[in-house]
């Protein structure tokens, strides 16, 4: 009797799994259940946030002062850069106007911190502490202070799941900063290595080249650092060169991340791109 009931549950489960894989009808269910699991999530990170708070509130005056001095010095250096940045941006805009190209404005960003790392060793995903209540959306680009880190793939009310660029199911269109050669950086499942696929043997890519996002996929904003080339192998007889790169983002270390809100990019679901309806 009970075995039959389990068989029925198995059929229902397989159906819902298939529906969930093919359509997004269950997204509201996921979102609503997200409210229920939010408290247990915040309890799970309580020890971590407690120790962080303890560490912050027991810093000595001396340490705080040196920290402030260090940050002030850094701020000066950055501000000097920013001064030049303003004039460069104005110049860039004027040039773009001459070319009658659309002008790129500064994006709005939201700071978030990492709640948890997915324990599954076969995927590279993390969970962050901002969700639908902060207008996070599926496909949103995520950065850390050094470069692109990944994109949001699932949004719950108070948390979201981020797929990192090192996941073996992920690939991102990039460009060599030095000369603009385009390539695709695919994740390998290893947090410290990306693989540049379909690079012709004659392409001008050298060890040490910085790869930046090209924005061609319509998902990531243009011009953020993605990785640095670490190894180029031209294998005679193979049609493509083997190029390895190390991601700029510190995917196994960063605690604080940035969510980028950019008009246009990211809001486009990938299916809409190849169906041609934007």
């Amino acid at each position: 009797m009970q075995i039959q009931r389990v068989a029925v549950i198995a059929i229902i489960a397989l159906t819902t799994m298939w529906v969930d894989k093919s359509y997004d009808w269950f997204q509201p269910v996921r979102y609503a259940l997200g409210y229920l699991i939010a408290p247990s999530q915040s309890v799970a990170v309580l020890p971590m946030s407690m120790s962080e708070w303890m560490g912050e509130s027991t810093l000595s005056r001396r340490e705080l002062l040196t920290e402030t001095h260090r940050l002030e010095a850094r701020n000066f250096a950055l501000e000097r850069k920013a001064q030049r940045m303003a004039s460069l941006e104005a110049e860039n805009m004027a040039l773009r106007n001459l070319l009658s190209a659309s002008e790129k404005v500064d994006e709005r960003v939201l700071v978030t911190s990492v709640l948890a790392v997915d324990p599954d060793p076969y995927t590279q995903q993390i969970i962050i502490d901002k969700g639908g209540s902060n207008d996070v959306f599926v496909g949103q680009p995520v950065l850390d202070s050094n470069g692109l880190l990944g994109q949001v793939i699932e949004v719950l009310p108070f948390s979201s799941r981020v797929l990192m660029i090192a996941d073996s199911n992920h690939a991102i269109p990039v460009q060599v900063n030095r000369n603009g050669v385009r390539a695709i950086a695919a994740g390998t499942g290893d947090l410290h290595e990306l693989n540049l696929i379909y690079v012709p043997n004659t392409a001008d890519i050298q060890v040490g080249d910085l790869l930046v996002s090209s924005g061609l996929g319509g998902r990531y904003p243009k011009g953020y650092p993605v990785a640095t080339v670490t190894k180029v192998d031209n294998i005679p007889g193979k049609s493509f060169a083997s190029v390895k790169a190390e991601p700029s983002a510190q995917m196994d270390r960063s605690r604080h991340l940035l969510l980028v809100f950019e008009e246009g990019a990211g809001r486009v679901p990938p299916e809409a791109l190849w169906k041609g309806k934007r």
Partner: peptide, 24 residues
Amino acid sequence: GLLMDVEQGTLIGVHVLLVAIHIV
């Protein structure tokens, strides 16, 4: 099962089946 599916980000229904097998 549904809560576990949402928590772990798996396809809706997998853990319902697993918990059902466990219980039976």
